[in-house]
Simulated scan of single mutants.
Amino acid sequence: MSGLNGGYYTLFSVGFITFESHFVNTENLPCLSDYNWFLNTLPEAALVVGDSGEILIANEMARRVFKSSGDGFHAKHVGELIPVEKRDGHDNKMARFHASPEKETRIANSALEAVRGDGTHFAIVIILRQITLASGSYTLAICQDVSEQRYLVTGLRNELDQERMLARTDPLTSIANIRSFRAELERSIERLSRYGRHFTLISIDLDNFKPINDDYGHAEGDKVLKDVGDALKSGLRSGDFPARIGGDEFAVLLPDTGFDAAKQFMPRLVQTLENKMDQSKWPVTFSLGMVTFNEAPGRVDKALMLADETMYLAKRSGKNRAAMRTFQ
């Protein structure tokens, strides 16, 4: 394409914007003032930066984006546009750009921040290109304010995370629901099948819960269930997985836990549950069934059935006790 005074130059594009990038005919290169005029026709913020980082040109859109007051630009050095705590990362990216043979790269992402003339921070994407003018080579920086996009993306991500959490969580007790528990149990079965990593499953049923619902109403019954959920959250070890299976039935998965370790843990678990009931003065006890799996049960339903059968053995034996077994 024909350039200024009959020279020739190549073009490059950023989105819908096309920029002059490198003049082939060095006898007809534009000067900084010519380039300043060109940059002021662009709809994006643009800076021309010297080798030492000094800002030589800032177009009108750059003044708006960076909120520079008055006729000049509020920053003399490109580093002043980056928050102090982010400057090391920015300098490293700039160094990689200058070391690149193509001298063309997108150096920013949603984590890059810039600072405006009023001191506020905002998210920015910067696209760099080396340009050659009559007085030498410079860096052209096209700056895009993406703070609104980041805000929208963050909001959508938070909503998605909330939906995922709700899909995995029992809304009453704030511990895992049956769907989430089945998925975690399936992973434990898979680890046992492939690597021999045994696990223990505990089924928990509340004794004397029905009279509370009948005599005091379901609102009081819900308080009991919440207390059980709180006790399980506070009384388990890191890595243990409690869940409300349904109604007044709960379960706990103890990954990588053999029979002896689980047997030693059971009194502590029962004591935690009983203490919570005593604090709230609920006349509730617990029947528990504990099964340690040294051999994979094959299916999630079979594992849950074995734990339930063991729990009902404790219930038929007089309630307020635990029954324990292994599955070989």
Rank of each mutant, 00 (worst) to 15 (best):
M266H: 05
L254S: 09
S52F: 09
N59P: 10
F97Y: 14
G318I: 13
C143L: 05
G136S: 06
V252R: 09
Y35F: 08
N294D: 15
I17Y: 04
I204N: 05
Q162P: 01
D118N: 06
G155K: 08
L29M: 11
S234H: 09
Q130S: 15
F19L: 01
G72A: 02
E148S: 12
R164Y: 07
V65T: 06
L133Q: 02
E102Q: 14
L152T: 04
V78G: 03
N275L: 11
I17K: 04
F259M: 11
R168T: 01
K93G: 15
S100T: 06
V224W: 04
A219R: 06
K281E: 15
A296P: 07
N294F: 14
M324T: 01
P297K: 00
V84S: 11
I127Q: 03
K276H: 11
D222S: 15
D34R: 06
F122V: 11
K67Q: 10
G246T: 01
G318T: 12
I189R: 02
A323W: 07
E54S: 04
G155M: 07
L156I: 10
E295S: 13
E20Q: 07
R168E: 03
F38V: 15
A251W: 08
F241M: 09
E60Q: 05
G318A: 10
E85C: 08
F293M: 04
V153R: 02
T169I: 03
L172M: 08
S2F: 09
I126G: 12
P83N: 03
K281P: 05
E249N: 00
D240T: 01
K302Y: 15
I57C: 01
Y195V: 13
F286P: 01
D214Y: 05
T310V: 13
A314P: 15
E159P: 00
N92V: 04
A251I: 13
S317L: 08
V270D: 11
I202E: 08
L47Y: 07
V49N: 10
S317G: 15
G70D: 06
N59S: 07
S180V: 02
L232S: 13
E85D: 12
G79I: 10
G7C: 03
R179C: 11
S174P: 01
Y312E: 14
T41R: 13
V146N: 00
T257L: 00
N92F: 04
T173V: 09
K210Q: 06
Y9L: 02
E27G: 10
L39M: 11
L56Y: 07
N36D: 12
L140K: 03
G247S: 08
S280H: 06
D145P: 06
S13C: 10
K76N: 15
E60F: 04
R325M: 14
A141C: 13
